[in-house]
Design a binder for these strands. Sequence first.
DNA 1: CAGCCCAGGTTCGGTCATTGAACCTCTGGC
DNA 2: GCCAGAGGTTCAATGACCGAACCTGGGCTG
Lengths: 179, 179
Amino acid sequence: MPLGKDYDRQDCALARALEVVGERWTLLVLRDCFFGVRRFADLRAHLDIPRAVLSDRLATLVDAGILERRPYAPGRDEYVLTEDGLDLWPALFSLARWGDRHRVGPGGGRRRFRHADCPAGGADLAAGGVCPACGTLPPPAALETRALDPDEDDGTRPERDDAVSRALRRPHRLLTPLP
Amino acid sequence: MPLGKDYDRQDCALARALEVVGERWTLLVLRDCFFGVRRFADLRAHLDIPRAVLSDRLATLVDAGILERRPYAPGRDEYVLTEDGLDLWPALFSLARWGDRHRVGPGGGRRRFRHADCPAGGADLAAGGVCPACGTLPPPAALETRALDPDEDDGTRPERDDAVSRALRRPHRLLTPLP
DNA sequence: CAGCCCAGGTTCGGTCATTGAACCTCTGGC
DNA sequence: GCCAGAGGTTCAATGACCGAACCTGGGCTG
């Protein structure tokens, strides 16, 4: 946990957010949840995260009311974003967009987010997560994401080959279960 | 650095952003830079961050082109946000806003951000950093921040008493030097 | 129903980051 | 010459993270 015992000495909303969401891996786990990944094994395969750490992060997020854990079969649980979790979307999108624009370098995996349910026809999201066509801030469920076309992407890294990564190359509506 | 050696195995813009900005303390340092804090000693006093860690984070941020280090007197340096750094504003604001709304609990220090240069009169920023009055996404330099009035704030913690904390209780234009 | 597999963990030593305290160095002022 | 303050670095101790190995409980297969 970032700041640890210093938590209550920081008089700042940002510090309180980072207390839950600022640990290593946590935001990447949440990104996957927005993409529609719901199961422990899929998160592990997609992120290459140590089991113990993933276990710990999921517990923290459930505790904080950001994820909900629910059985989908006897003995099997899945993790789904709550209302509070869904509200993290603008923050997550803004950070990813910044990474996309300023740290291009040697890593592909760039993607676009389009307002699929847009009354004005839809367009790729602009800064802040705003749809430039209709001017609103669409909720994640109204968005479709897809990888950049190979000719737009200058990444030269080998692509990942787990089920989630493969599914995410094709257009995909956010929050729809993956893979 | 989050993810460390796994950096190049993550095909994701978010991972690349977190590589620079996801370490403990880094976002809090940047928040202070947006507020107008520029000097090592002021950051230290305001954040209660260990010297070695602050030193390391500042070096990383300068390396990444997010901060610029420049002398303001012989032997004295200050740190100022670059263009790339300023572009982090929507992400920072969104996270702080989420913390403000979902993790209220036992910590005051809540604040509002108003579009001071708004042609439509200005209003507190809404989700994504958008000004609800004019519908644009104002740059940080166009914003004024102030602490919530005591009756709006349910924080019961003792207030901090360093120069930066004191200055930030009064209305303050972002990026204007503090304290 | 014995035996196996799979999802979703926990446990465990080794390694790496963070912490707080102490020490260093340069500049300017008296 | 001496001191103070800014902006560091160094160090031992603590805590987080890592990867590998082990555990558990339900379903399937024969």
